[in-house]
Write a protein that binds this DNA or RNA. Structure first.
Lengths: 235, 235
DNA sequence: ACCACAGTATGGTCAGACCATAGCGGATGC
DNA sequence: GCATCCGCTATGGTCTGACCATACTGTGGT
C-alpha cells in the first residue's frame, strides 16, 4: 500500500516520441505557419523509426490543425505547418456532442458568453463593421433556412473576428459549425426570421455606435429569441 | 471565371472514410463513453481497408479525446470510447501557442472572460465551494512557485467546475494547462503571493455568499494582480 | 481450491511494396 | 529562340505481412 519507490515503466509509444521531437523543433527553431517539415521517409530515417510511426504523428498534428499534408512535388508539397485551430475545434465539439458528453445547452451557454464578450470588445474598440453589414444584407435575401443560417453564422463569426481575439474567434467558429444542424432546426421552428433580423440590425448599430453595454444586451436578447426553449422568459 | 459545372474530384483519404463511418456508428447507435469499438483487424476487414488506415482513424479519434486504446486482452482492451475533451484542447492550445499563431494576451483574455462567467454562474447557483476551499488551503502551504501554481490551477478549475458547464470547465482546464509555464513565471516575478491568496479568499467568499457581481469583480481584479503587465492600471 | 503455464486476442511497430499526384527538366519540334 | 511534350522523381496514401509486448483466459496439475 505504501509507496515502494517503483514507478510503472512509462509506456511511450513511438509516434509520441516523434510528436514530441517535432514539437520541440517547432518551438526551438521558431517555426511558424508556412514552414515545411521534412518528408516522412526522411524523418523516419533520421529518427530511426518506421514510416508508419511518423505518419501517425503527422496524423495527430493534422488533426490538431498544425500541419497540412500535400502530395506531389515542389515547394508546396509535403507537410507544411499551418494554423487552423478552428477546424480542429469543430471536429472536437462535433464528436463530443455526438457522444453526448456535451449537451446543447452547454454549447449555447458558452456561445452566449463568448458573444457578449465579443460584442462588448468590438463596440469598445469601435471595430470595423463592414463585414457585419455585408452578412446582414445577405441574410435579408436568403431563401431557405439553410441559407439564412449560413449568413447568420457569417454575421456572428464576423462579430467574433471584430473582437480582435483569434482564440475567441476560433472557438466561435467551431461552436457555430458544430451547431449548424441545431441552428437550422431552430430557424425552421421559428418560421419567421424578421425578429432575428431586427436583432442583428440592433447589434450592428450598437457596435457601430460604440455602445458596449447595449451591444451585449442586444446579443443576449437575440439568443433568447433564437432559442426560446433554453432561455425561458424571466419573471 | 464562370461556373463550368465541374467540381474537383473530392480526394477522400481512406482513413477519413473510416473516420466518418465510425462517427456515424457512434451517433446512430448512440454509443457513449465506456462502449467498445471493434478491434482494428476486424474493423479493417469489415470495411475492406488496410489496418493502417484504421489505425490512422483511431489516432485521430484518440487525439480528439474520443477513444482510448488499451493493449492486451479482456473487456478493457481495445479501443474504448472515452470523453476527454480537455486533454485534446490542451494539446491544441499548447501547439498553437508554440507556433505563435496565438498570443499569450489572447489566451489570458479568454481566461478572464471564462472565469468571470464561471464565477457569476457559480455564485448565482450557490454552488458547493468545498473544492475551492480545499485548494485555497493547499495553496497556503505551498513551498514553491510550481506547487503554488499547481493548487492555484486546481482552485480556478474548481471554480469552472462549479459553473456546471462541462465545456467551460474543459476549456478552463486546457487554458491553465497550456499556460502553466507562464503562470509559474508570473508567480516568480511577483515574489509574494499574499495578494493572490487574498484574492482567492475574496472570490471564495463572494461565491459562497451568492454575490455574483462581487465574484466577477474579484476575479477581474485577481487576474490584474497576477498579470499586471497585461492589465495596466486604468486611469 | 489454488496456482502455474500455455494459448490467444489485442494494439504497437516495422519493412517493403505499389499507387496517384504534381512539379521538374530535358528532349523535341517549330 | 521558343514553346510544347513527356518521362523522371519526390511526395504522401495505402496495403500486406510479419513480428513483438501485453494482458486476459482457460486448462491442467497440485
Amino acid at each position: 500500500m505504501t509507496d515502494t519507490g517503483w514507478r510503472p515503466v512509462k509506456r511511450t509509444r513511438t509516434f509520441e516520441d516523434v510528436l514530441a521531437q517535432i514539437e520541440r523543433r517547432i518551438v526551438e527553431d521558431g517555426l511558424t505557419a508556412g514552414d515545411r517539415l521534412p518528408a516522412e521517409r526522411q524523418l523516419a530515417e533520421q529518427l530511426g523509426v518506421g514510416r508508419s510511426s511518423v505518419r501517425e504523428a503527422m496524423r495527430v498534428l493534422e488533426t490538431l490543425g498544425v500541419v497540412s499534408s500535400q502530395v506531389g512535388r515542389g515547394p508546396d508539397a509535403g507537410a507544411v505547418l499551418t494554423s487552423r485551430p478552428d477546424t480542429a475545434l469543430t471536429d472536437l465539439l462535433r464528436l463530443h456532442l455526438g457522444l453526448a458528453s456535451l449537451e446543447l445547452r452547454e454549447v449555447i451557454d458558452t456561445r452566449l458568453m463568448i458573444e457578449r464578450w465579443a460584442a462588448d470588445r468590438a463596440a469598445t474598440a469601435r471595430a470595423d463593421t463592414s463585414a457585419l453589414a455585408a452578412a446582414l444584407a445577405a441574410m435579408a435575401s436568403a431563401s431557405s433556412a439553410e441559407e439564412f443560417v449560413e449568413h447568420d453564422t457569417a454575421f456572428h463569426c464576423a462579430l467574433a473576428d471584430a473582437s480582435g481575439n483569434r482564440l475567441i474567434a476560433a472557438i466561435m467558429r467551431s461552436l457555430r459549425d458544430s451547431m449548424r444542424r441545431y441552428a437550422v432546426e431552430a430557424v425552421d421552428r421559428l418560421g419567421d426570421t424578421s425578429v432575428l433580423q431586427a436583432d442583428h440590425a440592433r447589434i450592428l448599430a450598437a457596435v457601430g455606435a460604440g455602445d458596449a453595454a447595449e451591444a451585449a444586451r442586444a446579443v443576449t436578447e437575440h439568443l433568447a429569441h433564437a432559442y426560446p426553449s433554453l432561455f425561458p422568459p424571466m419573471p
